[in-house]
Every structure is written in C-alpha cells, then in structure tokens.
Write a protein that binds this DNA or RNA. Structure first.
Lengths: 215, 215, 215, 215
DNA sequence: AATGAATGAGGATTCATTCAT
DNA sequence: GATGAATGAATCCTCATTCAT
C-alpha cells in the first residue's frame, strides 16, 4: 500500500468507499461499485489498498489514529489541570472529531459489531487504550476526591455508549424521532447534555438533580 | 415461505444462520456456509425461506412479532394501572425477551444500522409503533402529573439506547471491560439500573439523587 | 470432489481439459477454455473437481493409479516366473497403457518437469514406487545370475527414459523425423526395440550384438 | 527488443526469469514475479524485451543461436577429418554447452513440448537444421563405410534423446535415483557413455560387446 | 420433503501492458 | 534509462438460485 502523501485518486476511492459502506456495509459493497462511484478502474483499488480488506483496514486505522492523535493533544494540554477539565475536554474533542467525520465514525462503529478477527483486534488495541486513559482519569479523580466513588465499569460503558450513540442511532433519530443529527446545533446540545450528566453523576459536589431531561 | 409449524430442519437452519450472522454479518455469510453448518442441502434454504433475503426477513419478522406480542400482553395486563407500572413493566419484559434471545437481538440491532430498504421499513413500522406506545405512556404520565415535564425525544432515545446497549456493546463489555453479559445476574442488575434511572429522571417525586453510579 | 461413478459431464470436462492441456499446458489453459470446449458452465469445473488445481491432481492421480493397477496385475501373474519375463512383461504393459492414453501420458510427463510441490510429491511417491519395483527385479535377476552385473542407476534411467520417450518426443518425431507415433504398428516396433536392448544389455548370455540399429 | 550490448539490468531480468521459469514454467510465472526477483520495475521487462512473449523468444533465440554457433565451429574445424571425429566432437560440444547452461537448456526443452506456434516453428527451423547436419554426417559415414548400415531415424532419435535427457530427467535423477546431475564429473561420465554407445552401434568394426552397463 | 446437478451472474484479484514523466 | 500510475481484460472462484428427480 502506498502511504505517502495521498493523491487525488486515493482520496476519491476512500470517499466513494465510505459512502457505499455507510449504506450497504462492507460485505454488502463490491469493489466494482466502489470503482464506479470513484470513477476509476477496479485494479486501482488493489493498487492503492492492496485488497478490499486492505481498504477496510486502512479506513479503520485512519479513524483510530486520528482519534488518538486528538486525544493526545488533550492529554498534553497544560490548561487541563483538574481531572474534570481533562475528562470533559476529552469527550468534547472526541465528539467534535466524530461529528465532523460522521460517515467514517458510523462505519467503524458498525463494523466492529461483528465478531471478526479485525473487530477483536481493534477492541484489544484501540478500545483498551481508550479505556486505560479514561480509567486513569477516573482513578485519579477519585483519589483527589474530585470525583465520587463511582463504579468504573458503569461509567466507562456509559461514556463509550454516549460517544457512539449519535452515529449508531442516526437512523432511528432521523426516521423515528425526526430530530436530525445533521442539524447545526445538535452537536453542541449533545455535548452539553453530557456535561450535565457528568456533573450529576461524577462530580463530588451537591448539585441540582433531575435537570437533564426536564424542560 | 413455509409459515406452518416449524419442522426440525427449519429450526436447524435458523439456528445455524443466526450463529453465522453473529460472527460474519448477513452479507458476509453465504447460504452454503449456513447449509454446511445446518447439515442440510443448500436448496433447502431456498425451499424453506424462498431466498437468502427471505431468511433475513423471516428472522426480522419473527423478532419483531414476538417483541410486540410480549408488549401487547403487558399493555393488556390490568394489573398495570399507573403509567409507571406500565413503563417499567414494558422495559422489563422487553429486556427479558432480548436477554433470552441474545443472538437474534444482536443480529437485528446490527442489520438495521444499514441504510437498506428493509432497515428503513423496519424503522417506519416497528420502531414507529414502539415509539408510539412509549410516547403515549409518557404523554399520559405527564398529563396525570405522574411524570415530570421531560423532553420526549430525549427519553425515547435514552430508552431505545438502553434497550439495545447490552447487545450492541456485548463485545466491548467482554473484551475491554471484562464484565460478561452472559453472567447470570447481569440481566437483573441491568434492569434494576434502569429502574433507578427511571425514578430519578421521570418520576415526579423528591427522590434520592446520585445513586446509580455510586458504590 | 465427487468421485463416485463418473457421469457424462465429468468425462466431457476431463476430455476437454486433457486436449487443451496437451496443447497449451496446464498454466496456459484457462478454465473458461475448458468449459467452452466441454460445452458446460465454468462453475461445473469447480463443482466436479473443486478447483483448477483439483482437476490437475485428479488427472495425475487417475494416471498413476491406473498405471500401478496394471503393474500389480503383472506382478501377481503367476506366469511370469523368471525375472526376464517379469521385466519385459512390465515394460510391455506400461507401454501399451501409455500408447492407449497418449494425451494423458504426455500431459503427465510434461507437468512433472516443473519444480512444483505436486511434481516433487509425484516423484517421491509414484516414481519411487516404480523404481522400487524395477530395482527389486534387477536385484533378484542379478542374484539368480539371470542378469548381468549392471549398474542399477543406468538401467533405471534408461528404462524410465524409454518409457516416456515416445510421448515426450512425439513432436520431434512428427515434425522433424516425419515418423508418426500414431502409426498402427509403431507401438509394437517400439516394444520390440526394447526387447533387443534388454537382451543385449541385461541378459547374461552370449547374444548377437549390434542388432538393433542395423538394417 | 534491444539487441545491443547487454546491460546489467537486462542480464538481471534474464537470470531471474530463467530461475522462475525453471520452477513454475513460462505460463506459471508473471512478469511481476520476474520484476520482483530482478529487483526492477515491471515496465522494464516490456522495455527491454517488448513483451512477456518477447522475453520467451529472446531466451529461445539466444539458446539456439549459441547452440548453432558452437556447432558451426565444430563443422569448420579442419581437425575433424573422419565422420566419427565430427559426430563425437559435435555431441561433446553440445553436451558441454548444455551442461554449462542447465537452466536455459531445461527451460527450452520443456517449453517446446507444448503444441504452440513457437514450439512448431522451432521444430521446423532449428531442429530440422540439427537433423540435417547429423543426417549428412551419418550418410557420409555410411557412404565411406565408416559407419554401419543403421536406420537413420533411430539413430537421430537416440541422439536427440541423449542430448536432452540429463536436463529433462534432472528431477527424476535427483529425487528418485539420488544421483545428481550437478556432480562435477557427471558430465564427462555422461559423454563417455555416449562414446561407448557410438562405438558399439554405429562404428563399422568388430567391437567389444556389452560394455556400457556392466560394472 | 429433500437433494444433487447445473447455471449465469458476479465476486475479488491479477494479468501484461501503456504512458506520462 | 527507468519508473510509478493507471488500465482493461482476463484470471479463478463463489454466489444465490433453479430444476428435475
């Protein structure tokens, strides 16, 4: 695989693939469809990504590497002094990144639902890494009494679920609830909601209850 | 499609298909693999389910028909007099059904993430129906002052998400959090958690805050 | 692979493949060409022989199994009491079998010239077996003073070469020497020639020399 | 095709191709494999040899041109006064040339077993030429009573077979007879053997019989 | 009810080659 | 002289399906 500076055709293939994968899934999409959509020859896909599987891995890798590059920027930001700052900043950054790359995010979230080798590898590398980061923050927050004595697993599952929900339930929201994820201010509202949850469930302070769902 | 009393081979095919779909997804599984796993001839799948797509639709239909048959039992149960009873009873029943049919639930939840015609149809029929039921209960609950003045969409999304989370995040829980969904008492703990959330966020009463994640 | 009683299509494929392989070699022939020649669908080749490689192995296996079934008939024939009888009877039988299956023989002889795994396997199984049989006969012949004290390797190589020459040099004989292998009495003349060589080079008797090439 | 002085890359390609052809045959080898083995770009093969077929023809042509250049040196050598000298000198020279270019020899001998246009062309040009040369010598030898009254075709076939046997049966000798063609003195022993055969079968003199295979 | 044979369409991939640089 | 990009055709194989039995 050529992984130098991306050229135009590579990006065209990438974009076309993502669009098709979003609708039909990886296995439901043929490289011919991708080639047609990308207006290129089928052989080019093998040329640039080695194989269909290589294209999948490339997209996955790209998603997670950018994901963690953003995370590391936050972790090294000296402004985040409290664990609260760090935690909220992380979630904000991740959600922003994901809202800006909806298709890719949705694609990745869906494919890892399968029980494939790739899915398992991603779990045991990337998600373990993510878990470790959040775990450390929670642990430190609890040590400094900044956070309540919460059950780690439940917080972690909630966060993970919160981070992927807008992309996993995009359809449900569009077609059933008729509230679009695409709406400009949806992202910020969604992030705000998280802050509320965070304050009520993690922070060690007497806070106002029952706010988030009330009008 | 033969809708009569299920015979042995039909069930064998169903079981084999579900198992394979769990690992490889619908598009990633060939009817040959299913036939091999079910120890039957390929032609039998077409014979019993008309086509591969027919098998998919059969599984979906079966899932949702049982799903709603359970729901209607609850709705017609005269014991559920308050909206609180009704709401909690519904969630309990649904979760129980789903925990008893993990593979099928997970399969359905995953396949409807695609942008196919079938997925959209399911959204606009089954999930609309589900939404209508929960919406009515919330509306009535708010009218009788049993519930707080919550934002419907947020409650609905939360419930929907809560109902599918254990199946969508099964992998994540197993391989990253190392807390297994298969554990005997996981289901009841998960249901209890919902009750807490329900009391804190929907019920119109002065309740104890910050309970759910604290030790 | 179906290896029950051969049906008509299987034989048609076999025949077509053999014809094409003879002209173009295994690697030079596509399964499409075979399918066209056999007037069947490409998928049938996979259906009956698993894969192109499977077809190759099938032809090879068939050649050698028939080959050795003939050999074993000779070995168990009680009429062959002397080693001379046995040796000559073997060569006669093999040559007859090969002359009756020219294409197959030529195909096999050509493919094993490659340095592939299959070729090496065939060497170390079938040809070792053949060598063992001839070696034993020579050894016994030498013990009983029926044969001269010849160098085994040279006799073995000569025999092997003699057995395959008409098929390997078929082209040369046709197009350069203009003496056709297809001529009715060529086979018997060729076999007679071997007898002469055998008498002059192996038999322990004062024989008339320089016969074979003189007019 | 570039016929100028061979540059380094051309030779690298040639060597790599020959090595791969030996193992996999011409049709079984892709130019990509050759390019990889020769550590050059695929396009270079087309550049230097026009096409894959061009490479084949180049190797064939090179083999036979060198082959006949050696032959003509022998034919013009005034020292070879008798037909016996000439005949034996020819065979010696050819065998030496071939033993020094084993891979090329083997490759050529194998490819001409196919029924392709190229193979037929080679038969009708190069091998006809060879045959003509040997025929003339035999004829003259018979005329001068130097040789016996042998059947031309049988002698010619024997000679042809003898000249290619070590290369065609290389595998058989290695893996079955376990006597290596690579052994230093094998070539000279092989040539000596031919001399014995020649004396016994062609020369018009009372010679000692039954020598060649006895210990 | 159940199966083996057979098919045409389409799957991913690799092929030899060309061309601009 | 040499290369990387790009291509269309062809590779083998698998797909879901049909049909006669």
């Amino acid at each position: 695989m050529n992984d130098g500076t991306k050229n135009e055709m590579m990006q065209r293939i990438e974009k076309a693939a993502l669009q098709l994968f979003t609708h039909q899934g990886f296995d439901g999409t043929s490289i011919r469809e991708i080639a047609t959509a990308a207006k290129c020859n089928v052989a080019n896909i093998s040329y640039y990504f080695d194989s269909k599987k290589g294209l999948l891995e490339y997209l996955m890798k790209q998603y997670f590497e950018t994901y963690f590059s953003y995370i590391h920027v936050v972790l090294q930001d000296e402004n985040n002094q409290t664990m609260t700052d760090l935690f909220l900043q992380l979630v904000d950054t991740i959600l922003h990144y994901q809202f800006e790359n909806r298709q890719l995010t949705r694609f990745v979230q869906r494919e890892i639902l399968l029980d494939t080798t790739l899915a398992r590898e991603i779990m045991t590398t990337y998600f373990m890494r993510e878990k470790y980061i959040f775990s450390s923050i929670i642990h430190e927050g609890k040590r400094t009494k900044e956070f309540q004595k919460v059950k780690d697993e439940e917080v972690l599952l909630y966060v993970r679920s919160y981070l992927s929900a807008p992309f996993i339930y995009e359809h449900y929201m569009n077609e059933v609830l008729h509230c679009s994820v695409w709406e400009k201010n949806y992202a910020s509202k969604y992030i705000q909601n998280f802050h509320q949850w965070f304050h009520r469930n993690l922070l060690n302070q007497v806070a106002v209850c029952k706010e988030n769902f009330s009008v």
